[in-house]
Structures are given as C-alpha cells and as structure tokens.
Computed example of a mutant assay.
Amino acid sequence: MNEEVVSQTIRGLYEGILDETAWQSGLVRLRDASDSMNASLVEFTPINQRFRVNEIYDQNQELVDAYNGHYQAEDPARTYMRHMDQGDWYIDSRELGQANMMRLPFYREFMYGFRLSSVMACLVERKRSQEIYFFLQKPLGHPPYQADDAHRIGWAIPHLRQALRLRQRAHEARALVELSEQVLERLSFGLIAVAADGKVLLHNACGERWVRRLLAGHGVSSGLVSHDGWWMKRSLQEMLASACDPCETVPAQATHACDNSGNSADVIVLPLPPAHHLAEPWQRPAALVVIHEAGAAAPLLSDMLCDLYGLSPAETRLATLLTAGIGLPEASARLAIGHETARTQLKMIFNKTETGSQARLAHLLTQLGACVGPG
C-alpha cells in the first residue's frame, strides 16, 4: 500500500468512530489491500462459545445468516483462535493445509457455496466477555492466504483496535445520554445539576423554569425576590457552597420557596462530588437541586433514591431501616439477609450516596424524607 492509501485508511477508521460511511471505507481499503472478497468483524462470546458476524462490508445477509445460524459451530478456526494472542493471525492454509480444507464441510458446503476459498483472521481485541476478530475471505479461484498477506496489512491492526474501542465508547455514550434523558424526563419533580459557581450543568423539563427562578444571575439569596417573584427561607448560594465544599460537605439541605400568589415548593440541595457519575464529566464538585412543587404528586423516597443515586430496592430497604435508628445486625435480621450481605450493601449505599457513615446517611434521608414523604 502506498502512503496515500495508508493515510486514507487510517483516517477512515478514526473518522468512522462517528461516521458509518467513513468506517466502511476504511474496511474496504483493507479488503482491497489484501485482495479479499469480504472484510468483516466477528465477535466471539466465551460464555456460550459462539461466533457471530457483527459487521461485514457489502453485506450478504444470506451468508451472514448461514454463518451465524449454523456454520460458526463448524468453523475450524475455533480450535486455533483460543490459543491466539491479541494481534496474532489465523491463516487457514497454514493451520489446516489445503488438502484438509477441501475435505471439511465448512469449506465444501459454506465457503464454496458462497464462492469463497480461504480465510484469515486477526484477534483485534480480547476481553473477558468478548473477543473481536477481523476476518478476511478470498474469492473462489484465487490462491489461499499466506503469511505475507497478513504482514502486508498488519500495520492497520493497532489503528483498527483503537478505533474500535473509541467507536464502542461513542456508542455507549450516545446510549447513556439517551437513557439519561428518558430517566430525567420521567421524574415528576424538577432536577438541576449545578456547579459550585452556579453554572447549570443539566436539568430536566420540570426543572427548566426553576433554573430561571433560582439561578438567575448569582442565585436567590435569603428573603430576596428572584426572577419570577419567588423567595426562599435560606440562601441558595450558601446551600450550594456547603454542598460543594470539598473539606466539609453537607450531605443534604432543604428549604422552602414561595411566591406572592401562594405557590410554594420544597427545595433540596444534595452534594455531587467529583467521584459521582453525574459530576464526573466536569471533574469538580457539583450539586443536585431537587424541587418538589406543592400540589404535585409527591415522589416516594425509595423512587428518589433509585433515580438520583441508583440504589437498588434491597439497598433502599436497608438504608430506610438504618435511618430509623436501627443497627446493622437488627436491620439484617429484619430483612432476612446475612450480616456480610448487609455490610456489602451498606458499603454500596455509602459509595453511591457519597455519605461514608450512617450519621451522614441518616441526615441525607431525613432531609429527603421531610420534603417528599416516606418511601
């Protein structure tokens, strides 16, 4: 491959992280550089010992269905791939021998049936849950792959591996954003993530109007009128500062807001230190501002713990009991779980809520419970 084709191939793989057309063009150049008919990515799942074609350029659906449904189990590459290291190549003519290839059902029925003659594959990525292989297939009538064929495009494998990783992260990020938006919009109360300097990081639809009410300018001070004529019993600035204080973070704070028309709402401020998954992208202390308006359907405490902190039902039950002043041994007995299980759950609760002690956890749940009602 000349320098221009190499450059175009690498650019296509990295641009393909976000652009499907560019990704396909990168695979096509690798296919053409190896005189192949097909270029594909094949996933192997160790738990069920199955190969599955995930991507193939110029996809022949009949070929993909035949391989995924039946012939993956007869692929002789299985025997060799389990011993490969990342970056190693499987070359059928080298591992099997041409005479043996012609006698195998995989070649007689599948390969020759789709006018293919030879296979080589590289282990691109190996994880505990999956292995990703880059497969190339020669057209019928062409000589089988040799070691020189693998050597000729071996330079591309590190780029393919890195692009695959970034592509997967981009896909996961898009899925997480979509899921997060769905979860946030499902909440019946206002939710705003705020940095220590008052900058709004995100909010849901219910919280949008409260961004203007509570955070216009530098926030609402105690007793002062906000943008929409609302006032609060405590200074939001002070509550945010306490929630974002890295030295002495207050687990939870609550106050009451109202306007001259008799409307009212409870406002809760919860700390989100840098380790929290919602604060992590900004890598600095932040806070969640939760607003429950009077007259709106009150969220259950258990639902809030799940939505805001990701506590499981079992962890929520344990946290609620501990907040009532019950010790861990009695709580584990009431819940009919082992003491070690309870200790493990409590550690997860501390990690997810960033409290670190039962006293701080109790303070958090007491403040939440005072505004939203028991779960």
Rank of each mutant, 00 (worst) to 15 (best):
E4D: 14
V5G: 12
Q8S: 14
Q8W: 10
T9A: 11
I10A: 04
I10T: 05
R11F: 08
R11N: 11
G12E: 13
E15A: 08
A22N: 04
Q24H: 15
L27D: 05
V28H: 13
D32V: 07
A33Y: 09
S36G: 14
S36E: 11
M37Q: 07
A39C: 05
E43C: 12
E55H: 12
D58W: 14
E62W: 03
L63I: 01
A66S: 13
N68C: 07
A73Q: 12
P76K: 01
R78Y: 10
T79Y: 10
H83T: 12
D85S: 11
Q86Y: 05
Q86S: 07
D88H: 08
W89M: 09
Y90F: 15
R94V: 14
L96I: 03
N100S: 06
P105R: 00
P105M: 02
F106W: 10
F106S: 08
F106R: 05
E109S: 15
E109N: 15
Y112Q: 07
F114V: 03
R115A: 15
L116T: 03
C122H: 04
L123T: 01
R126S: 15
K127L: 14
R128A: 14
S129R: 12
S129K: 13
I132G: 00
Y133K: 09
Q137T: 11
P139D: 15
H142D: 15
P144G: 03
Q146I: 07
D148A: 12
D149Y: 00
A150W: 02
A163N: 05
L166E: 14
A170I: 06
H171D: 13
E172S: 03
E172Q: 04
E178Y: 08
L179V: 12
E181I: 02
Q182I: 07
V183E: 09
V183S: 08
E185N: 15
F189G: 04
L191R: 05
A195G: 13
V200P: 00
L202D: 03
H203M: 02
R212L: 09
L214G: 00
A216E: 11
G217E: 06
G219F: 01
S222A: 15
G223N: 06
V225F: 14
V225W: 14
V225I: 14
W231P: 06
S235L: 03
Q237N: 10
Q237S: 10
C244Q: 03
D245Y: 10
P246R: 02
C247M: 13
V250C: 09
P251N: 06
A252S: 12
A257R: 02
V269H: 04
P274G: 06
H276E: 05
H276G: 07
L278Q: 11
A279F: 05
W282E: 04
Q283N: 13
P285C: 02
A287E: 00
A287D: 01
V289C: 14
V290W: 10
E293K: 00
G295D: 04
L300C: 13
S302R: 07
D303Y: 11
C306Y: 05
C306I: 02
D307E: 15
Y309M: 09
G310L: 00
L318S: 08
L318Y: 06
A319I: 05
T320R: 05
L321C: 06
A324Q: 03
I326P: 04
P329W: 05
E330H: 09
A331F: 00
S332N: 03
I337C: 06
G338V: 01
H339W: 01
E340K: 15
A342M: 01
A342F: 01
Q345H: 14
F350R: 03
S357V: 12
A359C: 01
H363L: 07
L365A: 02
T366R: 10
C371Q: 02
G375T: 04
